[in-house]
């Protein structure tokens, strides 16, 4: 292999130490799960991966930050009395970018290991398959949450710079953050589940786009048709149960977080929206766990 003569004692010679055993401390399952979580979060933004894979997440992030910086500039320079768009509504307005981010990055965390079958190497290690699925989902959830929270932080900083009422703004921001967390849980579940089933990246992206963007569009259109054509308010509100975005927007509307829906969500619809959202998250998570458990026993 090497053409260096193994002369001992000569300066600059690399000595073969032979095989060395590792007798240091080994981490337990929680530490391994934490490592996987952090790695997954970094990979969702292309960090620690090829340069090409950083383009998509950061271009999307920049696009969703651009309007926020413009809004901040306008508010600070013109001294408006309030933000032209509420924090929660900003996320809603940029929903196309958020959905695209989830659709594009979920395959990174959920398809790659299954497609290249490196999942086998993970499962031959201490982390059990269900925990692996949950950790991956947690990574994607935080990645999506950060994607929506960063523009919110920029808007909030702008509002503070412009000297808007601190307590009002803080309340609105906290509401938006809670809604964004719920949204991230749902989007990560839906896009993750789709990516773990359709292993070709293209199919996974298209599937997530269908579920997150097209479905939301259809729900919104139907809600509006039902609102203008029908005479009951029940149908448009009920339709809102069928997409993650309309669920979050309905809850934001009910919570007075500054998001308009075709029909106000109130009364018994509020707990119904909350329950459906929680059930959706739980169902996706159970689906992911079942999927990885099945892969693990192959």
């Amino acid at each position: 292999m090497s053409d260096l003569s193994p002369d001992a004692g000569r300066p600059g010679v690399i000595h073969d130490l032979g095989y060395r055993h590792f007798d240091g401390a080994r981490e337990g399952t929680p530490a391994i799960a934490r490592t996987l979580f952090v790695t997954g979060l970094r990979h969702a933004y292309g960090l620690g991966r090829s340069g090409k894979s950083k383009v998509m997440p950061f271009v999307l992030l920049a696009m969703s930050l651009l309007p926020a910086t413009i809004v901040v500039g306008v508010v600070v320079l013109t001294g408006l009395g309030e933000l032209p768009v509420s924090y929660a509504d900003y996320t809603n307005q940029t929903q196309l970018l958020v959905s695209l981010f989830a659709a594009a990055q979920a395959p990174v965390l959920f398809s790659r290991d299954l497609r290249h079958r490196s999942i086998v190497l993970y499962l031959a290690r201490p982390l059990p398959a269900p925990l692996f699925a949950v950790v991956r989902w947690a990574s994607l959830t935080l990645a999506i949450f950060l994607f929506t929270a960063i523009p919110t932080v920029v808007l909030f900083a702008g509002a503070m710079l412009a000297g808007l009422d601190k307590s009002d703004q803080t309340t609105a921001v906290l509401k938006a953050v809670v809604l964004q967390a719920l949204l991230a849980l749902m989007l990560a579940g839906v896009s993750g589940l789709i990516s773990s089933v359709s292993l070709r990246r293209g199919f996974a992206v298209v599937g997530s786009v269908m579920a997150l963007i097209v479905l939301t569009g259809i729900v919104t259109v139907l809600q509006n048709i039902a609102y203008y054509e029908g005479d009951s308010e029940t149908v448009p509100v009920a339709l809102g149960l069928f997409s993650p975005w309309s669920l979050v927007n309905g809850l934001a509307n009910a919570w007075d977080a500054g998001v308009d829906t075709p029909v106000p969500v109130d009364g018994a619809w509020v707990p119904a929206y909350a329950i459906v959202a929680v059930l959706l998250v739980a169902a996706c998570l159970l689906g992911l766990v079942a999927r990885f458990r099945k892969v693990g026993s192959r």
């Binding site: 080994r26 981490e27 996987l36 290249h116 190497l121 290690r125």
Partner: peptide
């Protein structure tokens, strides 16, 4: 075959060692 094509062997083996509980 079980190796992701877009990662170097060096990075991959480090990651797999960490997944086995090494610091």
């Amino acid at each position: 075959d079980c190796l992701p094509p877009d990662v170097s062997a060096s990075d991959f083996v480090v990651h797999m060692a960490r997944m086995s509980g090494l610091g």
